[in-house]
Design a protein around this nucleic acid. Structure first.
Length: 207
DNA sequence: TGCCAGGCCCTCTTTAGGGCCTT
């Protein structure tokens, strides 16, 4: 699909699938030409209790998970949802490793490439106090109800941040944009995210 | 029982260490 992107966020039992941690919620929004056209949200039952820390951190209780669909069923549906799209997450390496781990358990895979709003923001917003999602939302004056650490809300906020970041990148590109311009190319975003911070200004100036 | 990640990025770097991010 042309110029489409799925912004996703996992809530999990911990930090490392290699240490046995599992996903407990997935939230995502689909952007086409920068506009939200669809969303996905589901709790999933990982088959074991989550810690009190995770219950407090996410607001997702063991009681809520007890009645949720199992991970395999949810991830089958989510794999269909992301099919054919590139993917975006805040600190994408985290969400990518859980996506990879959960899909490996059901023998599914995806073709899209990840881009990371955290790495991009470190280059575009070098004056931000820090690059936590909540901080960047406040830094850019984005309106929200503050329900961080739930998957759909975090995905929605990441999508809003992404929309603002694209506008800010476009503003820096300025007159380099042609009349046939249809949005910041995904390849340019990847290049920005992989360029050393000190060289980003030069990259944008030369585009 | 006790312990627990890992990629990115900066710097007092590269024969390394530590903070930032994600749950």
């Amino acid at each position: 699909m042309a110029n489409s992107l799925v912004v996703l966020d996992f809530e999990t039992t911990g930090l490392s699938p290699q240490q046995g941690d599992r996903a407990i919620e997935i939230g995502a929004v689909k952007l086409v030409n920068g506009e939200v056209v669809d969303s996905f949200q589901a709790l999933m039952n990982p088959g074991r209790k989550v810690s009190g820390f995770i219950e407090d951190y996410t607001g997702i209780s063991n009681e809520m998970l007890a009645s949720a669909k199992p991970n395999a069923e949810v991830m089958e549906e989510f794999c269909d949802f992301i099919s054919g799209n590139n993917l975006l997450a805040h600190n994408a390496s985290f969400d990518q490793k859980f996506l990879d781990a959960e899909l490996a358990k059901i023998g599914r895979s995806y073709q899209g490439q990840f881009v990371c709003s955290l790495l991009t923001s470190r280059r575009i917003y070098q004056d931000a106090p820090n690059h936590k999602l909540g901080t960047l939302i406040r830094y850019k004056g984005i309106i929200g109800d503050g329900s961080f650490h739930r998957a759909l809300y975090d995905a929605q906020m990441t999508a809003k941040l992404w929309q603002v970041m694209l506008l800010d990148i476009e503003a820096q590109l300025g007159e380099a944009l042609s009349s046939s311009y249809q949005g910041v190319p995904f390849s340019l975003i990847q290049k920005i995210a992989n360029t050393p911070k000190a060289k980003v200004a030069k990259l944008l100036a030369s585009y």
